Simulated assay, not measured.
Amino acid sequence: MSLTTDELKAKAEVYYGDEICHLCTQLLLREAGLPNGLLPLKDLIECGYVQETGFVWLKQSNRVDHIFHSLGRLVSYGTEITGYAEKGRIRKVKGIKTRELMLWVPVEEIALDDDPATGKLVCKSIAGITKTFPASAFHIPEKENNVKANCAALKPVVLMERAPRVVKNS
């Protein structure tokens, strides 16, 4: 069952094909300030972005199971991945699961730690499990053909600003 409808696609910038979708994915991660190796997807067939809401989707031909060797973590990326991209995070994520003990746990949010100096990435699940990892574990050195140069033909991604946190004084 697809989470993207024709009505949603009418409001979005939609791209087709592996190469352009990989460029869009890299541009999205760069603009969000997230590590470039966070979404190691293969054979992308479609991607889209609704600038008004920040909704993004990525469709690939098959599910991809990826091991982040430096963390010893297995992550499964479904055929359709959706979420809302903002500066420093992707929230309401669907289509990404991580292996915890003997269970596959859906990832609901991926965000940079509130203290940017720590360089930590926080992954939250629907089940209430929160894991923190070094953001560098998800970084891949870029090739000589810089992503920025390759993405010059694409429209820049304009992400919604992260809402400030309100701290109540008691």
Score class of each variant (00 low, 15 high):
8 L>T: 07
159 L>M: 08
80 E>H: 12
140 I>H: 09
47 C>H: 03
29 L>E: 04
122 V>N: 11
66 H>T: 09
65 D>N: 09
59 K>C: 14
106 P>C: 02
61 S>L: 15
93 V>I: 14
103 L>I: 12
78 G>H: 14
144 E>N: 08
36 N>W: 01
34 L>F: 04
117 A>F: 02
130 T>V: 10
105 V>S: 12
34 L>K: 03
100 E>Q: 13
106 P>H: 04
31 E>F: 02
113 D>A: 14
76 S>Q: 15
154 L>I: 02
95 G>C: 10
94 K>Y: 12
46 E>N: 11
139 H>S: 12
64 V>S: 09
12 A>H: 09
2 S>C: 02
128 G>A: 04
169 N>C: 08
32 A>E: 01
9 K>C: 11
156 P>H: 06
160 M>K: 15
84 Y>R: 14
139 H>C: 05
77 Y>L: 08
34 L>E: 04
43 D>M: 06
169 N>P: 00
166 V>Q: 15
122 V>L: 14
149 A>T: 09
158 V>S: 10
142 E>F: 04
159 L>Y: 09
50 V>G: 00
158 V>G: 05
29 L>A: 08
64 V>Q: 13
135 A>P: 00
60 Q>T: 06
99 R>A: 00
18 D>C: 11
148 K>D: 06
43 D>Q: 13
142 E>G: 06
123 C>I: 14
130 T>G: 01
126 I>A: 13
27 L>V: 00
170 S>F: 14
47 C>T: 06
34 L>G: 01
149 A>N: 05
144 E>G: 08
167 V>R: 14
118 T>I: 02
105 V>E: 13
7 E>R: 13
55 F>I: 01
73 R>K: 15
77 Y>V: 06
49 Y>F: 15
97 K>I: 00
66 H>L: 05
112 L>E: 09
115 D>W: 05
25 T>N: 04
91 R>V: 12
112 L>W: 03
51 Q>L: 03
143 K>T: 08
138 F>W: 10
68 F>T: 07
122 V>A: 08
24 C>S: 12
32 A>V: 01
122 V>F: 10
9 K>R: 15
58 L>H: 14
65 D>M: 09
19 E>I: 03
19 E>H: 07
63 R>A: 09
79 T>P: 06
141 P>R: 03
133 F>N: 02
9 K>T: 03
14 V>W: 08
95 G>S: 11
25 T>P: 03
119 G>W: 11
64 V>N: 10
138 F>S: 05
162 R>K: 15
157 V>A: 07
85 A>K: 06
73 R>C: 07
74 L>N: 12
63 R>E: 10
60 Q>I: 02
97 K>A: 02
137 A>F: 00
151 C>I: 04
55 F>C: 00
78 G>F: 11
79 T>F: 01
31 E>V: 09
84 Y>W: 11
85 A>L: 06
143 K>P: 00
122 V>I: 15
